[in-house]
């Protein structure tokens, strides 16, 4: 049996004195596309924060390739790509300069040139246009161009389809499928229905604590 890339064991997370989820077990194998579902406020973004190591406020275990994530954070981050609901794109800079920075802070690992990545997301000819001239959807595409650039194995995507047109969504799904087929994995949240067949869904609602203590229980 192949080893899971990411494994969550009995993960429990509490925020603002409220338990968001507990006993969350999940194995993400190479080739998996996992969609994290649940209503607003159920902890989707918090879970993504844990997976991107921006928050370490959890109980339980997160394993990366079988060993605790805490002990090999750098190795994990080196193989992680995160596209958040904020694009992370500087409006004063051009798409090319933005991606340049992105490659720089990620050690310059690159699978293709910046030009071809921008071409893939339909921004051919916009390479040197300052981003404040671009529309919201185009800004989003600049952020998504990183999916083409990165050699990362783990993709964590927070609402990647926001402000993207239908054709773009289809292309993005193809890209994810291709990435998964190549041995990578994708974890994403989205409120849109995905037409991909091989999506594993995990509903955070199921991991909500069964009964919460309230004063009425005792009095």
């Amino acid at each position: 049996m192949t080893q899971p890339l990411i494994e969550l064991q009995a993960l429990r997370c509490e925020r603002d004195e409220r338990v968001l989820f507990e006993n969350l077990d999940l194995k993400v194998m190479p080739g998996d596309v996992v969609q994290i579902e649940g209503p607003n406020g159920c902890g989707k973004t918090t879970l993504l924060r844990l997976l991107t190591t921006t928050s370490t406020d959890y109980e339980g275990q997160i394993l990366w390739c079988g060993a605790p994530l805490k002990d090999q954070r750098l190795d994990y981050l080196n193989k992680l790509l995160y596209v958040g609901h904020l694009p992370g794109v500087k409006k004063a800079l051009t798409p090319r300069e933005n991606l340049d920075w992105f490659c720089g802070v990620n050690q310059g690992h690159q699978r293709c040139t910046i030009e071809s990545a921008l071409e893939e997301v339909g921004l051919f000819g916009f390479e040197d246009v300052p981003c404040h001239h671009l529309s919201a959807g185009q800004l989003r595409r600049v952020a998504l161009a990183r999916l083409f650039l990165t050699p990362a194995r783990v993709w964590v995507l927070d609402e990647p389809f926001t402000a993207i047109d239908k054709q773009g969504v289809r292309n993005l799904e193809n890209l994810m499928a291709e990435h998964a087929a190549g041995g990578g994995c994708v974890l994403l949240t989205t409120h849109q229905d995905m037409s991909m067949s091989a999506v594993r869904k995990i509903n955070l609602e199921e991991f909500k604590p069964q009964s919460e203590w309230s004063a009425g229980d005792i009095v």
């Binding site: 991107t52 190591t53 921006t54 750098l74 190795d75 981050l77 080196n78 992680l80 995160y82 958040g84 609901h85 904020l86 694009p87 992370g88 794109v89 500087k90 409006k91 992105f102 802070v105 990620n106 050690q107």
Partner: peptide, 13 residues
């Protein structure tokens, strides 16, 4: 505000 701080925090260095 534009999300690049998150990217900085999870850059592998």
């Amino acid at each position: 505000e534009d999300g690049s701080l998150e990217q900085l925090l999870m850059s592998p260095q």
